[in-house]
Design a protein around this nucleic acid. Sequence first.
RNA 1: GCUCCCGUAGCUCAGCCGGAUAGAGCGACUCCCUUCUAAGGAGUAGGCCGCAGGUUCAAGUCCUGCCGGGAGCGCCA
Length: 589
Amino acid sequence: MPYLHEEIVQLIQKSIKQSIKQLKLADMPVRVEHPKMAEHGDLAVNTAFILAKRMGTNPIKLAEKIVGELKKNDLINQYFDSIAVAPPGFINFRIKTEKLLNEVEQVIKLKEAYGAEKSTKKVLIDYSSPNIAKRFSVGHLRSTLIGQALANFYQFLGWRVVADNHLGDWGTQFGVIIAAVEKYKLDVSQLTILDLEKIYVQYNKLIEKNPKLKETARAAFARLEKGEAKAKKIWSEAVRLSLKEFDGLYQKLEVMQFSPIFSPEVQKYNPIKYVTYGESFYEKIMIQVIKEAKQKGVAKLDAGALIIRFDDKMPPAMLLKSNGTTTYLTRDLATIWFRENTAELKSDLYIYEVGAEQSLHFRQLFKTVEMLGWCQKSKLVHVAHGMIRLPEGKMSTRKGRTVNVETFVDKIINRSRNLITNPEITEAEKEKLSRVVGIGALKYNELKRGPAVNYVFDWEEALNLEGNSGPYLQYTFARCQSVLNKAKPVSLESLTAGQITLSREELGILRLIYQFNKVLRSGAFQYAPNTLVGFLFELAQRYNTFYNNQPILKSEAQQRKIRLALTSATAEMIKIGLGLLGIRAPNRM
RNA sequence: GCUCCCGUAGCUCAGCCGGAUAGAGCGACUCCCUUCUAAGGAGUAGGCCGCAGGUUCAAGUCCUGCCGGGAGCGCCA
């Protein structure tokens, strides 16, 4: 049973096609769109215009003919109370208010399951993926939040979701760490992640002065790859203490292991499966991958290194360095091989939520997979997020120009705490609430932008808790709850407008609610959680306008029922939407 | 030099597969709590959608060139 939006789009497409067939016109795809202005109706179609153009006839007259046919269709008349022709040849449809009210009832009835779907498809999302021995950066934060939102979206749409935290726990960087630990004779188990980062930076500075040390680092990584015990011990300690820190952050942010609280039916249907293999895991598989690449003639030896060349303008990629060690590409190839050959990971779609600076790498990787004939390139998607900069310029650990994620989280929670003025809220509740609000604000602030944009990190903007922000939506939700609580139990079933003419504000809300599922789908399939954020913000805005202009509790009985239903549906939708974004909706604030 | 991404209001960003009068938030200025949560609402000011061509009935959206910003380009990941 599709949701109203989908149902209507299909109905329009089918009946327009029928009409043009009746009129003996050429068949063509029908695109249904939403006019920007409410006066133009809820949905519009420009098929008549295009057909008339092709035939060289008058578009308005043709549109009127088609509308004439449409109006012979009973089902169409059931759904729309006006179908109008507008220049230069649009056909505009206005959905019956009763139908929109039915959908509001659906929201209230289905609760957290409204908008959810079932599917047999599978997706694996590779996100967060921080580097061991380095602090968690805002870039990884971005990947984590966007990736988690996408995972939630797909889960809600019924897909089986695997969330893979592809830890950066392998590579020459560990050669540097090992070489540095050995040089300074440090006890790794006593170090913090910050210490590891410091010695990494320090050693790299030494390399600049003395390039020979680079060889020492490379050799150290080679030892690690061969499984030398001493090197492996340093490495595993670094991994252990890094993971401890990351887990702390994940828990605080309720990501990587946190799924929104959906109704049991949805939740048990397909829980997100979280895995953390990490790059090092693929070490064992790499040999066969290299072998296969050689055998298939995809990779060739060049100046001692194993190189893959591409036909087009893309620069070549390296599979094996001249000293025999592997590269990022080798591991990523092995990763895909493993995923494709492991039942619980094999998916219809693989999403990589990784920074845009790695775009070339992924293009090379996907092309190589295609050349090896493993799977279709179209199954592999790189959702490239833009770079986050500071007003002073690019972030740089060396120059001390970074945003510390922990500090960021603490600051925003503090600011939220200071804003709580509601006297009904106890001290203990205040503590919990400031976390929910602060973290919600942080997530929202990231997810409201399209993943691709580069943006400038501005503390004022990032810590803003007003306007287009997480707390705005949470506040609207709490406000709805407050109204509903004061309404006492009231039945919101069998809604009907009857003699009542709904206000512009009320209609505005109705005309948004039925589009929820569509927005969610496009957010998922276009890898853009920000589309849902924009939708929720608009819904909240419309609700707040309505709330400020029309009394709810004090209105006349039938009207009161409709207004309460709108309040209830709005609240439900905000809760579901925020949940999908990984943001909680407190009942009061 | 080559490749990719970006350029929309003072700032930060939306703008779906081309569609009807380009939208928000922040900041500025005015108002609105004896109605349900003012983290809210109403309003004013603010635009050559980087520039120039092209395609189209229709271009912020598609194509080409240029300018400006960012990222990447075999031994980093």
